[in-house]
Amino acid sequence: MGQKLKVVETEKTKEDGNWFYSDVVKDHFFNPRNFLKDKNAVKDYDGYGDVGNVLCGDRMDMWIKVDKKTDKIIECKWLTWGCASAIASTSMLSEMITENSGMKIDDSLKIKPIDIIKRLGNLPKIKYHCSVLGDQALRTAIYDYFKRSKQHNRIKEGVQ
C-alpha cells in the first residue's frame, strides 16, 4: 500500500526490538494458515489444548490430528485471540508442524518459542513472552492425545 516506511534502528531498539513487525509476521497475520474454520469439526481431532487467558491479552486453542502409524502430526488447527504476533506465531507453528507430511510428535515436543520467532524473521522483543504461547498449547494438545490414546507413559509430569 502506497509508500512503505522503513524502520530506523538505534542501539536501544536493536537490543529491545522495536514495535514493528517483519513481512513474514504480517503475511501470517493477514493470511493466517490452518485456523479452525469449522467449529463443529473439533470432534474429528485426536488432541486438544489451550493456553493463556483474556486477562493477559492472549488465548490460544489448538487441535491436532495424528497419524498413528508414523506418529506424525498431520493436521494442526488453532484459534487465537490476541495481538498480531500471537496470531502470526500460532499460524507459523501450525505450518512448521504440518509441513513436509507432518512432524514426528517427539520432534514437535522439542519446539521452543525461539524456533517460531526465528521462522517469523524475529518479533519485537517485548512480545517474546506474552504472545508466543503456541508451543505450550501444542504440548497440551499432544498430552491430551496421549491420554486419549492411553499412552500415559509418554506424558512427562511437571513439564510446562
Binding site: 491479552g57 490476541g82 495481538c83 506474552c130
Partner: peptide, 24 residues
Amino acid sequence: GVEGESLLLHLNEEGICAATGSAC
C-alpha cells in the same frame, strides 16, 4: 472478541490511523 492491536494493524493496512487501549 477482538484484540485492539490486531484491529489497528488491519485499519492501518487500509490507510486508517487510529489508536487502541489494548495492552499490546
